[in-house]
């Protein structure tokens, strides 16, 4: 469950304050698939970053499964992310000095999971890259890097997955592949929040939020619930 109350974000641009997210209230029940849509600079990434605790809001509170994360310190936030929130970036952000396998392994090691090596291998198998585990990010294609990034985001079985334009940097075929993966993950009951400006990708979401200039303009609910991509 994700709950935002009066959340806003103001940054300093040059010498002037610039509000990139205006006061927002939002409730996302567990297991829901929410697509956040809007053009570049509309505040999608900011919203996802705030939910993940990657950034602190200027005002308001953010609750993840009943915990107000705005009261947590940096290290507690990191811990929460490690256990409860997976994040997929548009630019993958794999650690270049680690192999694909090690990139998937790291969050489990941080969480001190004993079965980390086995699970990391399983995660790689799930995304079809079991044979490429020893390759470094620079030796993988963009689609492969993004699949590794998804495997990394899911390595600790987080109940929430946030994906910021995960296909924005990929060609159509690779983009489809990634969306199929995300669909399968949502089908397991994971809460999925996807930022995108691709209408087609957003079509399968339970809720579609339209954003512009740092504001949620409207919310559109899909009736009845469709699982278009899992079929």
């Amino acid at each position: 469950m994700i709950r935002l109350q009066g959340v806003s974000k103001t940054v300093t641009s040059g010498d002037r304050p610039l509000t990139i997210l205006h006061s927002t209230d939002l409730f996302i029940p567990s297991g829901q698939f929410v697509a956040v849509m809007g053009p570049s600079g509309s505040g999608k990434s900011t919203l996802l970053g705030l939910i993940a605790g990657l950034d602190a809001p200027t005002t308001g509170t953010i609750e993840i499964d009943g915990i107000d994360i705005t009261t947590l310190g940096e290290d507690d936030l990191a811990k929460l992310r490690g256990e409860a929130i997976g994040f997929v970036f548009q630019f993958f952000h794999l650690i270049p000095s680690l192999t694909a396998y090690e990139n998937v392994l790291v969050p489990m090691e941080i969480a001190r999971r004993r079965d980390a090596p086995r699970r990391a291998a399983e995660r790689l198998a799930e995304i079809g890259l079991e044979a490429r585990g020893h390759h470094y990010p620079s030796q993988l294609s963009g689609g492969e890097q993004q699949r590794v990034a998804i495997a990394r985001a899911l390595s600790n079985d987080p109940p929430i997955l946030l994906a910021d334009e995960p296909t924005g940097n990929l060609d159509a075929a690779n983009g489809r592949h990634i969306m199929e993966l995300l669909g399968a993950i949502h089908a397991r009951g994971v809460t999925l929040v996807l930022a995108t400006h691709d209408v087609e990708l957003a079509a399968s979401a339970d809720v579609r939020l339209a954003m512009r200039d740092g504001r949620i303009l409207n919310a559109e609910f899909a009736e009845p619930r469709r699982r278009q991509w899992s079929s």
């Binding site: 993940a52 990657l54 940096e74 290290d75 990191a78 811990k79 992310r81 490690g82 256990e83 994040f87 952000h93 794999l94 650690i95 270049p96 000095s97 790291v106 969050p107 941080i110 969480a111 990394r152 390595s155 600790n156």
Partner: peptide
């Protein structure tokens, strides 16, 4: 810097 940010993103704490 980016590798550090990634580690923080996947749960790494400052002391670690």
């Amino acid at each position: 810097l980016k590798a550090v940010a990634v580690l923080k993103c996947v749960g790494g704490t400052n002391p670690q």
